[in-house]
Write a protein that binds this DNA or RNA. Structure first.
Lengths: 202, 202
DNA sequence: GCACATCCGTACCGATCGGTACCGAAGGAG
DNA sequence: CTCCTTCGGTACCGATCGGTACGGATGTGC
């Protein structure tokens, strides 16, 4: 059995690459892609500029990798929510998870997938489009989950799974924006519950 | 009776200042405050850089004036919505107006008050805060309107007017984000109607 | 006609942007 | 110990950023 760490040649990296990525997430999250300068990033990550480029390629590549890590880490509640037994439980878990993730003490408010690059100059359009695709992917997952619920008789046959998914994503977007505007966690939980009040009853 | 146009001394301005402001709105709307460079603005407004500074002071001042004009113009549906006779009609008019304004053919998608400066670098923080205040003002207007509805017996006495206002603003924020992600007007109208389904029935 | 105020645009400012050339340091392989 | 590869950081690159100095043009009031 080969070692999982086939020590690479050359001088070893002096910093932990995942830890640096975690810190980059925080910078992009609070300032957005365009608002985060390389000086902001290098200071926040605790590494020098050439180290950043060697490890991550470019500012844009760094953002994509940070988004990936954000998705696997801080939005893991989403994957768990999809595994809930009923569609109503899925919706509740998604919105409650969104509120919690968007109002974590000690972390930036809102959601990287919403704030990262909502409106940008032409140069950052690829990043903007990547975030659109990121949100679209969430909708696609929810749509499949709700289609499954319709098939299983958990939702009325007349239900439009895509509409429900889009509705949830829309409310989640709004929660992220309001969290970044300073709305508190209890306030937003009430909003989430109000939004869940219109969930189709079987 | 004095003339309303007391012709000022000096060479007259060669462009219409409100028209230029309208065009600035479009640039800020589609690219955001940070993403809109002075070259973007001067090209979009059809005036030179010093003309822009003489007429509007700075990029930041220009943004504030553009936001003001946007509020009085493209979001006039909001003031009309507040004048609807019932709280349910107010809510419907707000969300339908939001969807329409966010998906106007020939105009940028979404909402300047949401996209303009959601996450920014430190330098643009005043602009970000101004947009937070802008959204907060909308919530305050709605809160007063719903308090009035409670007082008039149009809403149950147990209603929390602020919660309803925050809920509407949250859904409107989400609609703006989704519009900027490419969701269509019919889709978003369905989402708005779904959101209105949880409106308190008297 | 003349003085004055404001406008116009060209051409420029220092600062900051994202990105990199370079060279010494630090590890493994022989 | 030498070679090779990759790391580290300083010091720099051209491009673009927001903002302005300046000189010519165009209007009103006297």
């Amino acid at each position: 059995m080969t070692s999982p760490k086939p020590v690479p040649p050359g001088r070893p990296r002096a910093f932990d690459i995942d830890e640096a990525l975690d810190r980059a997430v925080l910078v992009f999250w609070s300032k957005g892609f365009e608002g985060a300068s390389l000086d902001d990033l290098t200071e926040g990550m605790g590494i020098s500029r050439p180290s950043l480029y060697r490890a991550f390629g470019s500012k844009e590549d760094l953002f994509y990798k940070a988004l990936e890590r954000y998705t696997e880490g801080l939005t893991a509640y989403f994957a768990r929510a999809l595994a809930e037994p009923t569609s109503a439980a899925v919706a509740t878990a998604v919105l409650h998870g969104t509120v919690e993730a968007a109002t974590m003490p000690g972390l930036p408010t809102g959601c990287l997938g919403v704030h990262g690059a909502l409106a940008t100059g032409d140069e950052s359009r690829p990043v903007r489009d990547a975030l659109i695709a990121w949100r679209e992917e969430g909708i696609a997952h929810l749509t499949r989950r709700f289609q499954q619920a319709v098939d299983a008789g958990d939702l009325p046959p007349s239900t439009d799974p895509h509409l429900l998914a889009l509705y949830l994503r829309t409310v989640a977007n709004g929660i992220a924006v309001q969290a970044a505007s300073g709305s508190s966690r209890p306030e937003l939980l009430q909003v989430a519950n109000l939004a869940l009040g219109s969930w189709p009853k079987l």
